[in-house]
Design a protein around this nucleic acid. Structure first.
Lengths: 210, 210
DNA sequence: GGTGCGTGCAAGTACATACTTGCATAAAAG
DNA sequence: CTTTTATGCAAGTATGTACTTGCACGCACC
């Protein structure tokens, strides 16, 4: 039933405490992505991580501590400076670079983004509210997109309302990531880069024949 | 803390059993949309519905029965025949009609669509697996979009790969609905019809200046 | 080779929550 | 008027789960 990551139960101390902690965090994210926050039990998380339940509590104190650790561990801020340096000036290439950065960050956050859509219980303590933290990185990238679009609109290359356009592009990538997460077996969109180029082509040129 | 729908607790039988059942179903969907399936307690659902907890169990037997009832009540199949009749032949108008139908059905299903992204626990009994049921209606509409696009591509009005285009349009609407659900206060996209027309305009014509 | 630290293991406690039950009662149905 | 039905209410039971604790044990480091 439960497939644990490490099968070397026998050894008392096969890994460093940091590795143990990391295994628990990964297992917690995994189980929570299938069962939700309340549905994920500390026992199952410990089993999947291949550690004893007591070890989990020795590391994180309580379940909320584990949640807070997840928020800190997996919602780390991306380095966005290098993104700006990679922009060439070519419209398609730039949008591909920006879009790819957004897609990668959303892919890393996909599980927590999914939770943020369900678990918005105002009674949960704020340190544990992953739903609020997750969107910081995508929103930062969204700001980059917004600035870029505004510049291209000002220069006459694009037309339309910059906030609307930026949000639409972000939504397309968001839906792509969520679709692939929900339906991983769909043959469509196998190649992420090709999908992104397709999106940008439609976004820029439309699908109407000329 | 808890705001119940009906405040007329005093009467023993203020409503018909059907109304009571409906209140419980609505309350269950409401609470579950905030706390998830496991996080939603029968006590809170009963409180929000303004009924006694025992009444909830008398109606649905157990929590799984309530879940199954939700799946049946809120995932009802839309009538798609009238949609085909409303199509005029004009490309923009037709796509608006189809897109609007899809947007409305997704809006009705938004809470359950959100759950379906999180709770995919293979151990839950199949009758209760709302996550599988929810997508039937959108997929039916997706098929309409797919056929329509294929026809327009064959006639030369559109160009590209019909499955990809259909999926992209569906994704755009999916992301719109989820965005508005997650961030209801965002000033952007206030008017759903205007947003849809904007999406279709970008989809057909692109945003590049000509 | 001794000490401390991290872990497994087993046995717990406390509490929340799903679910039951018996009775009173009010409204509807006959 | 009588009966039935749907509900409220209060007091349950059973179980799962978060969390603790004491002890044994092995690995690393001095």
């Amino acid at each position: 039933m439960i497939s644990n990551i490490h099968s070397d139960h026998s050894d008392r101390r096969s890994a460093s405490p940091e590795e143990t902690r990391e295994r628990i965090l990964l297992a917690a994210r995994d189980v929570m992505s299938r069962k939700g926050r309340r549905g994920a039990t500390t026992r199952e998380i410990a089993d999947v991580a291949g550690v004893n339940e007591a070890t989990l509590f020795r590391h994180f104190g309580n379940k909320d501590g584990l949640m807070a650790a997840i928020a800190q561990r997996f919602c780390a801020v991306f380095e966005l400076q290098s993104l700006m340096d990679r922009l060439s000036g070519n419209l398609e290439d730039d949008m591909f670079e920006i879009g790819k950065t957004l897609m990668q960050s959303m892919n890393a956050l996909r599980d927590m983004i999914a939770w943020s859509l369900v678990e918005n219980d105002p009674e949960t303590p704020f340190q544990v509210r992953i739903g609020d933290e997750v969107w910081r990185v995508p929103e930062a990238i969204h700001k980059v997109i917004l600035d870029y679009m505004a510049g291209r609109i000002a220069s006459g290359e694009l037309h339309g309302d910059a906030p609307l356009l930026a949000r639409l592009l972000m939504n397309i990538i968001f839906a792509h990531v969520m679709s692939r997460r929900k339906f991983p077996d769909a043959q469509i969109y196998d190649d992420a880069d090709a999908a992104l180029r397709f999106y940008i082509d439609v976004f820029l040129n439309g699908v109407r024949s000329k």
